[in-house]
Design a protein around this nucleic acid. Sequence first.
DNA 1: CTTCCTGCAAAAGTTTTGCATTAAC
DNA 2: GTTAATGCAAAACTTTTGCAGGAAG
Lengths: 150, 150
Amino acid sequence: MTVSDRGDLVVHDQVADRLRQVGQRYTARRQEVVDLLRQAGRPLAMHELLDAAGDLPMSSVYRSLSVLERAGAVTRYPTAGGHGLYELSEALVGHHHHLICTNCGRMEDLDVPPLQEGDLERVVEAIAADRRFHPTAHRLELVGVCADCA
Amino acid sequence: MTVSDRGDLVVHDQVADRLRQVGQRYTARRQEVVDLLRQAGRPLAMHELLDAAGDLPMSSVYRSLSVLERAGAVTRYPTAGGHGLYELSEALVGHHHHLICTNCGRMEDLDVPPLQEGDLERVVEAIAADRRFHPTAHRLELVGVCADCA
DNA sequence: CTTCCTGCAAAAGTTTTGCATTAAC
DNA sequence: GTTAATGCAAAACTTTTGCAGGAAG
């Protein structure tokens, strides 16, 4: 068993738990969708998912994502093109931020070291402090040219 | 002449400039779309724009937004629903961030005071420093429950 | 065996486009 | 006058849904 296999198991277990909590089954189709997202390791657009899905019917992908999103296993993100990007939720893969390349349009995951994440959280707290807004989460996106495109 | 009127003039002038630079005219239709965004003061979804557009034909709204976006006068943002939110670009209305309400789904503008924006920029610099990524912009979104929904 | 999930195909909804007309320069 | 923008309606594309058959508990 490889490290990756173990990671898969943990993720699948967690997804199964979350689905169970909302009265849903973790079926083969839904596992396939989770695997697609897991293998990508970055947020995927619907058309990328559909392409990668191979013989998976379109409606299964849509319905699986919808259920997984409702169960909190998948999160939907922005894209300049206007359609969502799907990713396994932070609860499964950990808190992280994103890099968006202005050239190729890709969105990559950005793991911020604890020290810097701490700094960021303090700034977020300070910003929220004197507003009538109580943040439960924050998202930071760095926009620029990625290593591949530079 | 009110303060708001003066602001409108400045915005319209800047939009006109930007359009001219890409060889486009600032027509009545395009001005109407800019006014809709300006009056909203927050990012609008396409369907909100179409609703607010009244007698403006759908295809004009789409085409105007497309041109304005290409000219850098309008920016498109994420939404949980997957479709974009449109807003006048930061070049026109100044650098700001966003609050996203988990209850009503609204995205509000968030003006960060210079001191805190400075802190934020330092954190962003630190995060980007040891990566092969050169950020040209950053976006911060605070997710939580807004004042109206609390 | 009972409930939920899946796949298909059709429907609904959204965005884009061709082309004749109108407006801008 | 010449070029570009607009409005309409059709086309293309995306997403959702109804329903019969199949799988899961």
